[in-house]
Amino acid sequence: MFREMRRDKQLLSIEDTVAVLSRCTNGVLACSGDEGYPYAVPLSYVYLNGRIYFHSAKAGHKIDAITRNPKVSFSVIDEDKIVSEKYTTHFRSVIAFGKARIVEGDERLESFAALVDKYSGNQPEEAKNKEISGCTQAHIIAIDIEHITGKEAIEFVKAKG
C-alpha cells in the first residue's frame, strides 16, 4: 500500500526515526482540504505511545479536513544544513502516514499532559496542571500511524561508517 523508499541506503532505522520524532518540536500536517486542494499546516506536536498528538481549535479548516477524510501525512525536518559549495543540504527527516481522530477521556488527558510538558519548559507543576484541567476550547487529535520512514543525507550515512 505504501511505497518503499527509493534510496534505501539513506533509510533511518525505526529507533532513529522515533528519536527524530521525539526531539523535534514542530512538523507539517498534510490533509485533503477544501475542493480537493491539499492543505498542509505547521503545528506543534508530541510523539507518545507510537502516535502523534497535537491540539486544534474545535472549528476550522484543519478539523473540517480531518472530519471529511481522516487520512493524513505528517512530516518533520530534524536537520537541514546548507552545503553551498555542493548546492545541496545535509538533512534528516521523517514522514508518517496514518489516520487522524479526536481523542477523549484518559487518552486526551495523557496526551494533553505530554504536550503541556513538552512545551512548558520550567513552568511550575501547578501551572501545568491548571492548563491541562482548564482547557476545554481545544481538541486533541491523534494520528494513528500506519507507515513511517526516516531518511538522512548520504553524507550522514557515510559518516556513521
Rank of each mutant, 00 (worst) to 15 (best):
K128E: 07
T25E: 04
R6D: 09
P38M: 01
T89R: 02
L29T: 10
T67D: 09
I95R: 03
L48K: 11
I132K: 07
V20Q: 03
E152C: 14
R23D: 02
R92K: 15
H90L: 08
V116C: 03
G50P: 13
I52G: 10
N69C: 14
F156W: 00
I145W: 01
D34L: 12
E85Q: 07
Q10Y: 00
T17Q: 02
I102G: 07
K86M: 10
E4D: 15
G33T: 09
V157N: 03
Y53E: 10
A138K: 15
K151G: 13
I77N: 08
P124K: 05
M1I: 04
H90A: 13
I148N: 05
S75D: 11
Y53P: 15
Q10L: 03
E146A: 11
G134Y: 02
K128Y: 02
G98Q: 08
I132G: 14
G121C: 09
L109G: 14
G161F: 00
S56P: 13
A100D: 03
S22V: 03
K151A: 05
E107M: 07
A59V: 15
V18T: 11
S120L: 07
G161R: 08
F97L: 06
V157L: 05
C31T: 13
G134H: 02
K58W: 01
V76C: 10
T136W: 01
R7F: 03
T25Q: 07
Y39R: 01
T25S: 09
I63M: 14
R101D: 13
Y37T: 13
H90E: 15
F156P: 01
T149V: 14
E35A: 15
E85N: 14
S56A: 15
D8G: 02
S75N: 11
G105E: 05
D144R: 08
Y39H: 15
K130W: 00
A30M: 09
A65N: 05
S93N: 09
Y37N: 15
G27Y: 01
I140D: 06
A59K: 14
T17S: 09
I63W: 00
I148E: 02
P124M: 04
K62Q: 12
G121Y: 00
L29H: 04
S93E: 04
D80T: 02
I63C: 05
P124L: 05
S75L: 11
Y87C: 10
